[in-house]
């Protein structure tokens, strides 16, 4: 695909906007775990039961965005490597930060994370037993629904998984710190006068996303080791007990 460098950049920015928006909504949804089992289960149930075109349309759209973002990034990086066949003997920077220099790395890890995350919680292929977690809590009509709350708690019970999630959220945070500000630049909406503030806002956004996502595995682990006691424990309806 031999399209203009700027078109590729626009693709990165536009898909970036979608994904930036998505993680915020996703995080807001997740935070309902803190409200309680009923809230998150009801929310998850509602999402799952959206009319199929909307549900699958959105899923497909997001998937396409991720793929376009990743494939375009791959092309860009490949071209960039070709454009600089030999590195400097001494590689230094004056302005570029850690995050902006490692978008490829953080991005690739994010892609791996997304695959894992989908297999883990959405498709539930890694631990098929999550599918058996059923409850009536949060059900709109009292029938049995999937107990997302228990699944999350069970999922983060495993130290390694929680640590992995937190690390990945940190990478996401850094990816966003560059990406959110860069997005404005690529679309031509950034100016040097505002760049400082925009960079700060982007970084803040990254940290908010980090905090919002990480708080759940952190609390689950903290509660596991008796450091806090704020999460509603799994009742008899679920197979995992804290």
């Amino acid at each position: 695909m031999n399209q203009s460098s700027l078109l590729k950049k626009y693709l990165m920015a536009l898909t970036g906007i979608v994904l930036v928006g998505f993680v915020l909504v996703h995080m807001a949804g997740n935070l309902q775990v803190l409200i309680g089992r009923e809230a998150i289960n009801a929310y998850a149930y509602a999402l799952q039961n959206l009319p199929a075109p909307i549900l699958w349309g959105s899923r497909l759209f997001l998937l396409v965005c991720v793929l376009v973002h990743a494939v375009t990034a791959y092309q860009l990086i490949k071209e960039n490597r070709m454009a600089r066949p030999r590195a400097n003997e001494i590689e230094v920077t004056k302005r570029a930060g850690w995050a902006s220099l490692r978008m490829g790395l953080t991005g690739s890890l994010m892609l791996a994370f997304i695959v894992f995350h989908l297999l883990h919680f959405t498709i539930r292929a890694i631990f098929p037993e999550y599918n058996d977690m059923k409850t009536t809590v949060g059900s709109p009509d009292g029938s049995e629904i999937h107990d997302v709350y228990s699944m999350i708690l069970a999922g983060f019970q495993v130290d390694a998984i929680s640590i992995f999630y937190v690390i990945c959220m940190f990478l996401l945070c850094r990816h966003l710190a560059h990406g959110v500000s860069s997005m404005f630049q690529t679309l031509g909406f950034r100016s040097e006068r505002w760049r400082g503030k925009l960079d700060l806002a982007a970084s803040a956004y990254g940290w908010i996303i980090f905090a919002g996502f990480s708080i759940i595995p952190v609390l689950v682990i903290a509660q596991k080791y008796g450091l806090v006691n704020c999460l509603e424990t799994c009742g008899s309806s679920c197979s995992v007990n804290l």
Binding site: A83, R95, E192
Partner: peptide, 25 residues
């Protein structure tokens, strides 16, 4: 055969005439 802009700002930092990234935007 130039590479793609990744909005690092290294160019502007190295520019002897301090050309601003605003022009890239």
């Amino acid at each position: 055969g130039f590479g793609n802009c990744r909005n690092y700002g290294e160019c502007s930092a190295a520019c002897p005439k301090d050309i601003s990234l605003d022009y890239i935007a």
